[in-house]
Amino acid sequence: MKIAQFQDIHRAYKKGVDVLAGVSFGVGPGEIVALLGRNGAGKTTLIRIAMGMMEAQTGSVRVFGLDPRKDAVEVKRRVGYVSEDQILPPFLKVSQVVELHRGLFPTWDDDLARRLGARFAIDPEAKIKTLSKGQARQVALLCAVAHRPELLILDEPAGGLDPAARREFLETSIRLLNESGTSILFSSHYMSDVERMADRVVMLEGGRVLIDSALDDLRESYSLALITAGPEVTRERLLGLAGCLAVRQRAGSLHAIFQLDPEEAREVLDSALGIGDMRTTSIALEEMFIELLGGHGVEATGGPP
């Protein structure tokens, strides 16, 4: 059974302009799923729907088999949630925030809370409004994980944090995950974080799921070819090749993204265009993100299957 299951989710903020236009995917037990997409792709909307804080106009969402809107309290008791725009009550002391969470989550682990609190070195008597952004986020993480949730939902959790704080945040999340087998659904714009944490990547574009693939498969089945441009080797011809998703021109060379492993891409290029002067490599996730979501190649080829 899936921990969270989205089925054909639609949601619009303005009539006729869908932010989500039929999103379907699931998060399995113990799985870490990264939700990727450009700004406005609907990641936060989807996460808020999973939390029961928004509702889908059509489609169904189930978290632990429950409707997060109708069974909001039950679902939230089993979920840990940290979001970039989440604000802890600024007028409360850290200890009061922790006390509030202890009372609301039956599975609260005092020992874990104490360990995390000491590790983050935050004064429990400090008011939230006096903390730095990183410290406030650490308090939010403490509250989100100390009840040992079955599902941890992180919406741009490291947004605005410096690299050291971000690393600390992610390492804590991963370690806790290893301890208790928690599933994680998280969105991030930091591809290095995604590569470090995620088992699976779900990429949203135009309100739909563009890619839903295990990270390892993604690394193996996509490649970048660096080709010297010439009269016979043009952007248009490359885009016409099987598996070519996007082509970008840089000075005298062309960078082509293939949904093929590097060896297969080399064979396609060699057999179709007789190109010998080229280099094919596996592609970094960030490069793929930019090429697929930031370029125009997707539109030219209609996107990956």
Binding site: P89, S95, E99, L100, G103, A113, G117, D123
Partner: peptide, 29 residues
């Protein structure tokens, strides 16, 4: 800090007191 956290996370408040705190925090300020 360790000692502070040990002191901060002790005991458990009754549900009615927690609810009263919530009322105070939601409708206060």
């Amino acid at each position: 800090v360790e000692r502070d956290w040990a002191a901060a996370v002790t005991g458990r408040r009754a549900a009615w007191r927690r609810n009263l705190d919530l009322v105070r925090w939601v409708a206060g300020g």
